[in-house]
């Protein structure tokens, strides 16, 4: 089911002239500025998010990483006094434009939050929540299949297959976070945004999720915010360093960690501040 949707999307991309001009960029941000009331949180960000790659966003707290991430699926719309300027496009289409609705966009650009937030429903209902509201599945068998594939992809199937009817809130923290990932996968998004997905987890659960991210890259484009330098180095191919609302530099992860061009980047990754 989800595979079909994906091939369909790729076909559309190939015929899209704009996408052809920048073939590997799934999402593009150009001069993105964000204001919370009068306060400016982002000061003109330019980033290309490459398809089937993991992009890590690093930087000290309050530098605007979450804000940027939330622009990508328009989650900032839910904040009253938040204003976004600049261009963000998905497959060459302006996500703040007329033709895309925030609700549809969020089905294509999924999100995993810092604190695991399973709904107070059964594990099964947590997974089918998205597919149900988007009408992706109507029959029982289809839903069963979505639940199974999503949980398998999230590496949770073996642990929960016998208790799908039990509440998702009863799982351990790491399991809850994987459930949230499975829930996001279930609507077959093209991009998955993760905001510090491991910061509430223990090292073993973290390792689990990192492994998972690496596997998910095959099918999805991933943007992850992390405070953990090792984690960024392990899971990402590209890394962007944010500082005080600016994107200081964005490059191959290896480059950033071995040979940062800006001295602020160097200071941050060597732990001099942040």
């Amino acid at each position: 089911m989800s595979i079909q949707t994906r091939t369909h999307v790729k076909a559309a991309e190939a015929t899209n002239p704009q996408a052809a001009a920048a073939p590997a960029a799934k999402m593009v941000a150009r001069d993105v500025k964000v204001f919370y009331g009068a306060k400016q949180a982002l000061k003109g960000i330019n980033i290309d998010i490459l398809e089937n790659k993991v992009l890590a966003l690093i930087g000290p707290s309050g530098c605007g990483k979450s804000t940027f991430l939330r622009c990508l699926n328009r989650m900032n719309d839910t904040i009253d006094n938040c204003r976004v300027e600049g261009l963000i496009s998905l497959d060459g289409e302006d996500v703040y434009g007329r033709r895309i609705d925030a609700v549809q966009l969020r089905a294509r650009v999924g999100m995993v939050f810092q604190k695991p937030n399973p709904f107070p429903k059964s594990i099964y209902d947590n997974i089918v929540y998205g597919p149900r509201i988007h009408g992706l599945a109507s029959h029982r068998d289809e839903m069963d299949e979505i639940v199974e594939t999503s949980l398998k992809r999230a590496g949770l199937w073996n642990e929960v297959k016998d208790r799908l009817r039990e509440p998702g809130t009863g799982l351990s923290g790491g399991q809850q976070q994987r459930l949230c990932i499975a829930r996001a996968i279930a609507v077959s998004p093209e991009v998955i945004l993760m905001d510090e997905p491991c910061s509430a987890l223990d090292p073993i659960a973290t390792a689990h999720i990192e492994e998972l991210i690496d596997e998910l890259r095959e099918n999805y484009t991933i943007v992850i915010v992390t405070h953990n330098m090792q984690q960024a180095a392990r899971v990402s191919q590209k890394t962007a360093f944010f500082h005080l609302g600016d994107m200081v530099e964005c490059d191959d992860t290896e480059e950033i960690f071995t040979n940062p061009r800006d001295e602020r980047t160097q200071g941050y990754i060597t732990g001099r501040y942040g």
């Binding site: 699926n73 999924g110 939050f113 709904f119 509201i133 996001a184």
Partner: peptide, 27 residues
Amino acid sequence: VPQSLRDGSYGLGATRSETIRQVVLPA
């Protein structure tokens, strides 16, 4: 009801009324 539950629902592409009916009220 924690904002994180609403965020989770919006993040999956649910509308406001879907979120209220299916997540906020049950919670």
